[in-house]
Design a binder for these strands. Structure first.
Lengths: 226, 226
DNA sequence: CGTTCTATTGACTCGATTCAAACTAAGTGG
DNA sequence: CCACTTAGTTTGAATCGAGTCAATAGAACG
């Protein structure tokens, strides 16, 4: 069990949504954690698990994936705590899976209970995390419910870009994408075949005469938008 | 500002998700509230509002509706507090609208802050409410993302049935539906025309030879399922 | 009694799925 | 180092679910 180190991205995330005084951040540095390295498709949590530790994502991407139909209901970026809710309700309703290689810090529930009792600021920030997650879920619903598939994929990419930027990543509006086309398809509720065609549309768009030319950008996603 | 009375459905809801001792329920009876009656389509909260009171739904149905595209992201039944999150984050991202006539108890944020500080049981139950809401949103995503439109509508109806039953309504697996076909359409992300055809499919299914015959059940929804 | 929602119906169109096959890249092991 | 496997991407053709448009019919309302 190491101390320190893992808190950094989480601190970025928390300060991006709330003002935190110095000593709150100091509390975070005491975060005890066990680091886990995962390969693409690895299960971080299974639906049947009843974890006693939270997952703080340090590097890479995780997603919640429905075990029945494979629908991805959220994608998480570094600094996120995808299973924060398990602090209150230990039951899971889906699998937590790595999209591409990922590094996760496992932090005992007790630590979060401790800091919420010690600092009202951190307590507030953590509750905000949960509320923002819910807001993201509503956005996800709007995305699936009221946009055509091309716009869906575009919005997803933009959302990820912005969330990366909130923790100091994707500074130049681009990020290396470990996502397969099937991943994007499960997230946007389209078929893998159709995802492929859409991504080709993007590439075509990007290499239009008005734009600079660049090599085939399937695995390397550029640009953010509104 | 009346006391008592409005707490009853909320108490049903809370006890359906958590064990609450007598004195916690006693605390709830002290809930101060202002009662509001609304007609179908009335706005209970607008996106621009920054409410200082929570909405406890007493009768009827409310929904969160995206103001851009009209997508409904959740439907709420009596006992729900659709804007509980506004306790922590006052900003709204959608309109809260009545589906059919509805009765709402407005309860000052201060009351909830008070009872959460007085009772850890109530505090826990209220946080569970938020987490369950999030779980419902994920279900909603799965519904839109991975089922055909007929199944979507069926699941929506079943979900509402079960949530009604959690607060002692729809005991016989049926409930009077104030929803228009357009409402169901916005909730399930299909066109109103298609919603109409689907509902006719249901009616046809119900009046099949193997089944008892009943009159056209457009506005009166029977049955719940898995 | 007309106005306004809501529900209904048919015809046409289109986006997206499915199926099937081929192709690429990246391991893996003999 | 090459044969073999596996995962991911690409392509085309056929099909289908659902949307759109437009017109009509009821029901509810003031």
């Amino acid at each position: 069990m190491q101390k320190g180190f893992a808190f950094s991205k989480l601190a970025d995330r928390l300060t991006s949504i709330a003002e935190l005084p110095e000593n709150d951040l100091e509390l975070l540095t005491r975060m005890p954690s066990t680091i886990g390295h995962f390969a693409s498709r690895d299960h971080i949590l299974r639906k049947t698990d009843q974890p006693s530790r939270c997952c703080v994502l340090l590097q890479g991407y995780l997603c919640w994936k429905d075990d029945n139909d494979g629908q991805i209901t959220s994608i998480h970026v570094p600094g996120d705590i995808p299973d924060l809710h398990a602090l209150i309700a230990p039951r899971l309703e889906a699998h937590l899976i790595a999209l591409g290689p990922a590094v996760v810090a496992f932090v005992p529930h007790g630590f979060f209970q401790e800091i919420t009792s010690l600092s009202s600021g951190l307590s507030h920030a953590l509750r905000l995390l949960g509320i923002i997650d819910a807001a993201c879920l509503r956005n996800w619903i709007v995305n699936l419910g009221s946009r055509d598939s091309l716009t869906r994929v575009a919005h997803l990419i933009c959302e990820i870009t912005m969330r990366l930027q909130a923790v100091g990543l994707a500074r130049d509006d681009r990020f290396a994408s470990p996502f397969t086309q099937s991943d994007l398809a499960s997230a946007c509720a389209i078929s893998a075949v159709h995802a492929n065609r859409i991504i080709q549309d993007f590439s075509a768009e990007l290499s239009e005469p008005t734009r600079t030319n660049w090599d085939s950008p399937t695995r390397d996603i550029r640009r953010g938008c509104s």
